[in-house]
Design a binder for these strands. Structure first.
Lengths: 150, 150
DNA sequence: ATTTTTTATTTGTATATACAAATAAAAGAA
DNA sequence: TTCTTTTATTTGTATATACAAATAAAAAAT
């Protein structure tokens, strides 16, 4: 479906506006779809993102700054996301002994187990969208998005 | 900058995941940039979106359902967005005489004036991104996004 | 050694998202 | 006409975003 139809636009839009709307709308579709996957696990998309970053640390603790700069939304409030994960025992949080300003955050086994359970569903989610394009188109879309953003 | 660098990914990502992250991250960049434009006018991106929809009605009142289905984020809470706009006298809200379940929302002259002031900045914002691609690439990006989303 | 600046994190506040439940009027069925 | 269903909107609650200000420890400057 064309973006004009998705937002029931009455006037024709120029290509610059269509692309902006298309990126914003596609993000919404992806996110809504992903939220459905996460619902049974009672974690939000941003909380999942933090867990994924922590797993990527492979046992090394992450501090708040590190998590922040790896987040997609650079203005996410990492403190409060970690608070929520802590309540669910999916992470641990301790003051760094070398630098008492820093906080060491680690994913727990329970956190790792949840990610392992979600993993195949994430792959399916990614395929659901990417299957609609052939591999050449996928590469092209990725290149164009990066060039568009600069 | 490649998406892996933006999120400081340590492991190589496959193309399906890269595109998802790229769409989500590009949306964040576009939105942050657009928020900067709106800041002096003290309206949010979603409030701007409602005003834009109301202007598109060309004097005909819009009801909540109509606004909702024209929004980019289909789960936006239109009632509360209109509440905020009402407080700033940018819209009017009245019960529809023909169907007392429906609400007629209209943009005020003050609302139209603000949009007129913002218009050239929106064009500049759109160009800021689209200037990075030639017209063939723009068409291609638009087509690929729509095909990707289905 | 004390003061200033920088760095890391937390807290506060307004707005928005996501989703469920409540309200209330209109339309349709018995 | 009365009851039931559908439609349109509002309200409640938890979470997240956006941004500014506060806190506090480390590093640098005097």
């Amino acid at each position: 479906m064309k973006i004009e139809d998705e937002i029931k636009s009455t006037v024709p839009l120029d290509i610059s506006k269509k692309i902006i709307l298309n990126v914003l709308y596609t993000q919404n579709v992806i996110t809504e779809n992903f939220n459905e996957i996460l619902k049974p696990y009672e974690i939000s998309g941003e909380q999942y993102n933090v867990l994924r970053i922590l797993r990527g640390q492979k046992g090394n603790p992450a501090n708040m700054c590190m998590i922040q700069e790896r987040m997609l939304a650079k203005t996410s409030n990492t403190t409060r996301l970690v608070d929520k994960l802590l309540l669910k025992n999916l992470v641990t949080r301790n003051v760094c002994p070398d630098n008492r300003r820093k906080i060491e955050v680690l994913i727990t086994q329970k956190g790792l187990d949840i990610l392992t359970e979600i993993d195949p569903k994430v792959v399916k989610h990614e395929s659901f969208f990417s299957n609609k394009l052939n591999s050449e188109e996928l590469e092209q879309l990725n290149i164009l998005l990066e060039k568009y953003r600069n």
